[in-house]
Design a protein around this nucleic acid. Structure first.
Lengths: 341, 341
DNA sequence: CTGAAAGCGCTTACAG
DNA sequence: CTGAAAGCGCTTACAG
């Protein structure tokens, strides 16, 4: 494998000069640049990144960490962020990690080894940031999860107002005439700054504000966001509360499996059961029936995150925490309950 | 950030000795090991991977390259491979790349920088391997794509027999009584070793063996594997051939959107239109109706790939190319055509 | 504009 | 069992 030395000896220049052309430094003669570039082509030379990073001081590029490998919603944000970043001429490195990994530890490793100028986190757990992010010397922004309560100067966040969106979701069902409403998805913890907890709290508060019940493991069934888990949870809910006429699913994936579970019980959607999802991923528009959903604005979130990091990477600016509007996307999965039709 | 020198001076040992305990070499006294390990904890020292890789000669770990970021089927294989590899105590590094990137170039960069012992490729394009894989000095295995025709000594492959599975798919529809069959998905190229091309060829051959037509852009509509593209393709197909009673979709994603498109045209599934997908991903079991599919055995593919690479990483063995059985998973999306009911 | 030299943080023979 | 030294492939002041 060709090294910088091979290029140097082949062209007769010193490795210092070769290094300068590799890194597009200005003080190199045209002739040197041309000859060295030719040699690089010829020998198929690629600088060893380890050696480069070992010595280089200036951080470069933006590191994106996506927490949730198969997560369609985060994937859709990622695709937009990638496009935006490339348009702005920034190098980008991505890591997809599973929900069980710690994104901030991943980031710390990244800082040590690849020295990015800044981070974008898609998804994330509040606790991970609380424990470690202070130690990371470059700015970051987290998307889909409000971290304003953490008060970390270098960490912005852009998220949907999950609490309000969830209240609106329940309200949509109530407005359609439903009084027997179930909730499925997520897991009950005490960390109320977590976005799923806000979603849950919103559902609870709106139900209770309307004198409706919200009881964990009765009409609220926690579950992970997979089809399988959602299906089981839906069955538990419908076993517990056979009079249920509407379900708010904390994610679209769960919403899809709720529809399936209902169908397997001979219920028609939306006539016998209304279902409302969350996120607004593409499958909503292709399921039968189409799944109504509280849609998070992925494109907007992506744009805010990119603009923010590109500025804060170059200028000292306080972190900002903003919320982007959600929209109710009407599908075909909500109708008034049979009784009042 | 603490370096190996800090540990050395803190403990009074030389950096050589510190390096030995970091790498679990045998010839270190118990006392040295203990004291150095303590210091490592205390100073929160993490070896700089760039420096390590720069010098280290012995390759380590298995690199997995997944080509297709949001691909549910490849994701499901990946999850199993990850588990298998961890159980075997192997370090694993993953890269998710998009279909437009070249997986072999990614691998070459990886070799240069992280020196893995071997590669597992999930998905892939034959052409990329043809051009470059010879230059990679460690063994590899590609999953879902048969590369036996390439005759690269260091490259195994495990795949579904796409050709036969596709013939069986069409045959299933014919057996159900269909004569007006459409095909959707993939793209027609000339590279017949590509797995999608085999799938396509299988469909074509089986149709023609039964005196049925297969005509690109008439009853075969090529399209990328997204809901949106599948939906449009389905509409084109049904516009072209209104008498279609069954569709073979080259992926489940496309199958789902075919069902949606048909429903939007007022067709009932399976009464008016039978749909058969390919891959057997989890959504098949949660769609309404459940999507019948030619299922690839993800768990089996994963196990074969891991066993293969773990052996060939340690012993000189010829590459092997094997095919794992597919299974027809019956859902609720296939019925006889109305006419003969 | 260019070269010579130091050094990034490690690993690895080589001595002892 | 341990240390001293060379060197991995680069970048970066420093001279000139």
């Amino acid at each position: 494998m060709a090294t910088i030395k091979d290029i140097a000896s082949k062209t007769g220049y010193s490795i210092g000069t070769v290094s300068r052309v590799i890194n597009n430094k200005s003080d190199v003669s045209e002739e040197a640049r041309t000859r060295i570039e030719e040699a690089i082509k010829e020998l198929d030379f690629h600088p060893n990144r380890n050696a480069k990073m070992l010595k280089q001081v200036a951080p470069s590029g933006i590191a994106v960490i996506v927490r949730g490998i198969g997560n369609r919603f985060l994937n859709s944000i990622f695709e937009k962020i990638q496009t935006d970043l490339i348009e702005n001429g920034e190098n980008i490195s991505v890591r997809f990690i599973s929900e069980t990994e710690n994104e901030v530890e991943t980031a710390m490793r990244s800082v040590r080894h690849t020295r990015p100028k800044g981070f974008i986190f898609l998804g994330g757990s509040l606790d991970d940031f609380t424990d470690y992010f202070q130690e990371i010397p470059v700015p970051g922004v987290v998307v889909t999860c409000d971290v304003s309560t953490l008060n970390i100067d270098s960490l912005s966040s852009y998220s949907t107002d999950d609490y309000t969106a969830a209240r609106a979701a329940i309200n949509t069902l109530i407005t359609a005439g439903h009084r027997n409403i179930g909730v499925i998805g997520g897991y009950p913890t005490t960390n109320l700054s977590d976005n799923l907890q806000r979603r849950l709290k919103g559902a609870k508060d709106e139900l209770e504000a309307n004198d409706l019940v919200f009881e964990t493991n009765f009409n609220y069934i926690p579950c992970p966001f997979s089809y399988e888990a959602g299906y089981e949870a839906a069955n538990r809910l419908l076993d517990n509360c056979p009079e249920t006429t509407a379900v708010f699913a904390l994610s679209d994936t769960v919403g899809i499996s709720v529809m399936r579970a209902a169908a397997d019980r001979g219920m028609k959607i939306p006539e016998d059961l209304s279902v409302l999802g969350f996120d607004g991923i593409d499958i909503c528009n292709y399921s039968i029936p189409r799944l109504s959903s509280m849609k998070q604005d992925a494109a907007h979130l992506a744009k805010m995150a990119v603009d923010d990091i590109l500025i804060r990477v170059n200028y000292q600016r306080p972190a900002v925490h903003e919320t982007v509007p959600y929209t109710f996307v009407e599908g075909e999965s909500i109708a008034p309950p049979r009784a009042i039709k």
